[in-house]
């Protein structure tokens, strides 16, 4: 009897493993049905929980009631203001600084999104946005916040996309020092990620990068538009393994606490390799 049960269990295990392997093969494609379906069904739930977690630091009920009364009085006085001023203020709050970026760079196609999930298994603060291929998001697209570049889209399905941050060693972006003109490659590392820092590697021997310099994307590879803010040089270090120098960069945005970001789905020099003017 025991042997019969054991055999039945083994058969069930083999069948389950075969099903999982087949599912795995079919879910490998970009925009797979499995992840699109699950993300579409659960997007609402994750949005609610992400918003609830973000507002967990908010004030107590009494403080909120008091604030509500004050706001009602203030609102009544604001109604007396010119309607044009109110419309302009509401428009600025809604449009966010991404559209300021778009005004300076009209070729940018920007899709704003909210962070709905963070992968517990990722060591470099990867997150999931609630925008996907249905809105034009593609793998490799740069992801920004109002403070600058924060990552790139590593996976995308119809309803959501996963973003790897600039703290990850998988990130390879050509960057330039605004002050000295030196170019390098932005890439993260495990040791720097602990302190929410990243690195500008492949510095030339004759580089003139110094502390406090501003680092921006070079735009030479056709993957990232030129001029996106990245961070500030914190120090210049020596890599004992390959005898090269690299700059430790403190990103302008704290990628571990982002709650919203935008994906640049298109820009003028996308896909075009441009010769760098940098040193």
């Amino acid at each position: 009897m025991k042997k019969k049960t054991h055999n039945r269990n083994l058969k069930a295990l083999i069948i389950t493993l075969i099903i999982l392997t087949v599912l795995s093969v079919f879910s490998q494609a970009e925009n797979s049905l499995v992840s699109s379906g699950v993300n579409t069904l659960t997007k609402g739930l994750f949005r609610v929980s992400a918003r609830a977690a973000a507002s967990a630091d908010s004030a107590t009920r009494e403080e909120l009631l008091r604030e509500n009364e004050e706001l009602k009085r203030e609102n009544a006085s604001l109604r007396a203001q010119l309607s044009e001023y109110i419309d302009t203020k509401a428009e600025n709050e809604r449009l966010w600084s991404y559209y300021g970026l778009k005004k300076e760079n009209p070729s940018y196609q920007v899709v704003p999104g909210n962070v709905i999930r963070r992968d517990v298994n990722d060591d470099f603060y990867a997150f999931t946005l609630d925008v996907g291929t249905a809105l034009g998001v593609r793998v490799g697209a740069p992801v920004i916040t109002e403070n600058g570049l924060v990552g790139w889209v590593s996976q995308a399905d119809a309803a959501a996309c996963k973003v790897k941050t600039i703290l990850s060693p998988d990130t390879k972006a050509s960057v330039t020092d605004k002050q000295s003109g030196d170019s390098g490659v932005l890439s993260g590392s495990v040791s720097l990620c602990e302190n929410h820092l990243t690195a500008m590697t492949k510095l030339a021997e004759s580089h003139q990068v110094k502390e406090g310099d501003m680092i921006v994307t070079a735009g030479t590879g056709g993957v990232y538009p030129a001029g996106l803010l990245v961070g500030q040089v914190q120090s210049i270090e020596f890599n004992k393994y390959d005898a090269s120098r690299y700059a430790v960069i403190k990103p302008y945005e704290d990628v571990s606490s982002i709650t919203a970001a935008a994906v640049i789905t298109d820009f003028d020099s996308k896909g075009k390799v441009v010769k760098s003017d940098a040193k």
């Binding site: 999982l20 879910s27 992840s35 992968d119 996976q155």
Partner: peptide, 15 residues
Amino acid sequence: ISSSGTVGFFSIAFA
């Protein structure tokens, strides 16, 4: 699905 968007390692390992 949370991690990589595809069914794979964890589903087989957990099973």
